[in-house]
Design a protein around this nucleic acid. Structure first.
Lengths: 206, 206
DNA sequence: CTAGACTTCAAACGATTGTTTGAATGTTTG
DNA sequence: CAAACATTCAAACAATCGTTTGAAGTCTAG
């Protein structure tokens, strides 16, 4: 209870799980790998989380709660401006993910886990994500709709779908671009976010 | 040897594997699931392919050989025109994937498998894909470079990375857009490709 | 200090994993 | 036809999977 945060058994499991799920996928990373990496007894996962599936959900919940709170706060700030630009709304979505991947020692692992989730067709996981965080996407969609009145609803949804894929993929840096040797991780990711926003804005406006 | 194509043990394994890898991932789909779905003895996989990893590679090779041949042919056709447009080059990349997913009974499964591969950090798979199909991406990159002389090399690579992600995910339709009840699969996918090309062209041009 | 709750631990559970075996069957070739 | 090769098959291999157990250890409240 009075454990130092980040050093409790639960926390160490979550961190190891995040890292290994990012590397090998949800099916590919075993609980034995996770508990060994976390330096924790195998049974601890079922004791603290109940099952592997619930561990996966907790890996998401821990990050997404804060990520989406930040996203909504940023969106609110943007929409309070007199003339919010498309780029501002995109930044409100992308920048919090960028910060998350930089501030925490978890680092880029979670955004990769998110991309994994995108590729999974696991019904339970999709429902969990939709139930808990669907409203965030709805609010952003509404904001985009206001800024792009020339697009009908179907047109808009198509483009947002494409944007979501591009964002997810690019933030997870599955691609070919390598960080230059002199460049810091922060630099690299900030540049990625910048490119993304410009690209997506152009595509959305057409 | 003289089997009717598509009904041999090898073919049936490849088709079942493609489908199940798309649904559950490479680690998530077991050889027993695959061989049961293919109506084939379990040992047949190791007899015909040697191992699960080599089966995965063959799932890719079978489709990618033709997909990339079509892509290169389409690119060559486009570049032979007096004034090739950006959209033409994009179409040369996207349309063959669209056709592949429509013509074959494998249907949309393979494009989903491709998206899975993107999310995998499996070193062997990445090397296999890069060794066998890296030259195709290089040729397209060169074509884009010619059409977008205002972009320096780094700028261009960033954008192509984003485009690749958007294309991959959108073609695999992991997103939220649902096909309307009256709409055919073909209609839906053609529309997806169209949106993609317009979006990517706008983003590339800025 | 002690009773009770919480947490960790080694060990084992049955089920499932990819792979291998050797005999049985099919097919092709001389 | 017979020898040679190719394929299929049921069965078993050791390894690993997620989960459960019950005892040992740790902590906290009375």
């Amino acid at each position: 209870m009075t454990d130092i945060p980040g050093f409790s058994t639960k926390q160490r499991i979550l961190e190891a799980a995040e890292d290994l799920f990012a590397k090998h996928g949800f099916a590919g990373a075993s609980l034995r790998q996770v508990t060994t990496a976390a330096n924790v007894n195998l049974a601890a996962v079922n004791y603290h989380f109940g099952s592997k599936e619930r561990l996966i959900e907790e890996v998401f919940r821990r990050r997404l709660d804060e990520l989406n709170a930040r996203r909504l706060a940023a969106l609110k700030r943007v929409l309070a401006k007199p003339e919010p630009a498309l780029e501002d709304v995109l930044a409100a979505f992308v920048k919090p993910a960028l910060e998350l991947s930089l501030d925490r020692k978890g680092g880029p692992a979670f955004v990769r886990v998110l991309a994994r989730a995108y590729a999974e067709h696991n019904e339970r996981l999709r429902k969990f994500l939709s139930d808990n965080y669907g409203h965030v996407l709805k609010e952003f969609a509404a904001a985009f709709a206001r800024l792009l009145p020339q697009l009908d609803k179907e047109e808009l949804y198509w483009r947002l779908d494409i944007v979501a894929g591009a964002l997810t993929y690019a933030m997870a840096d599955f691609g070919v671009i390598k960080r230059r040797s002199g460049q810091s991780e922060r630099d690299y990711r900030e540049r990625a976010a910048q490119h993304l926003i410009r690209f997506a804005a152009a595509g959305l406006r057409e």
